[in-house]
């Protein structure tokens, strides 16, 4: 899906790191040799995005460019290339549903429709109250617990239409739903319980 940067009237005039984040940024830059500080562009953009309601305004890119002594366009190139930098405002809960083959085979269509029904928005849209944005993404690397979705930094896995709705409800209430597999299994154990080396359990 084509990402469209926020129009000018949504772009803040300025951006500055908080004292805490500025210190973190110093630390990040210090990891790289002198005159190689441009290597810090990606973590710094991430830091800026986390500070700025999960999206990256142009002012923040300019600030990063200045901190790293880079031409602005070089920062814009990085920020637009990587899809995990959001160029326009997103909801408080940024829902990314994996629809790549393993998740799709395991029922990601149900997850997508559960989100659409529950929130009343289509993929790529944000709810009117600004609480949720739902997008479709490619593989997030949790195929063993497919289907799954990521909300901000948390993975919710082994989803069904019902468990998806339950997670969204909890988030809407302001609760913190349990992250990880929603179907009862522990992390990536086989869904029917452990099957390997079980004979030795308890005998040793």
């Amino acid at each position: 899906m084509k990402r469209v940067p926020a129009p000018d009237d949504q772009q803040p005039d300025s951006f500055a790191f908080t004292a805490e984040n500025a210190a973190k940024a110093e630390q990040i830059i210090a990891k790289y040799p002198p005159r190689r500080q441009a290597s810090a562009v990606m973590p710094l953009l991430d830091l800026a995005q986390r500070q700025h309601k999960n999206w990256l305004p142009r002012a923040a890119m300019n600030t990063v460019a200045e901190m790293l002594d880079m031409p602005r366009i070089r920062v814009y190139e990085v920020a637009t290339f990587y899809t995990m930098y959001n160029l326009a405002p997103v909801g408080e809960h940024f829902v990314q549903i994996c629809t790549t083959t393993p998740c799709w085979l395991r029922g990601s269509d149900d997850v997508v429709s559960a989100c659409k029904n529950k929130l009343g928005i289509d993929l790529g849209e944000t709810t009117a109250d600004g609480k949720f944005t739902v997008i479709e993404v490619e593989c997030l690397g949790a195929c063993v617990n497919a289907p799954m979705m990521q909300v901000n930094d948390d993975y919710f896995e082994d989803l069904t239409a019902d468990s998806t709705a339950a997670v969204l409800d909890a988030l809407a209430r302001g609760d913190k739903p349990k992250v990880g597999p929603q179907g009862g299994r522990h992390t990536t154990e086989p869904s029917g319980g452990p099957t390997t080396l079980t004979d030795f359990m308890g005998d040793g």
Binding site: K2, R3, P71, R72, I73, R74, Y76, E77, T80, F81
Partner: peptide, 19 residues
């Protein structure tokens, strides 16, 4: 003058000044 760049990616790649 480092003002031109390739923004976005893949099929959406665009050449320009971004701003």
């Amino acid at each position: 003058v480092e003002e031109l760049g390739a923004t976005f990616r893949g099929e959406e790649t665009e050449i320009g000044t971004y701003v």
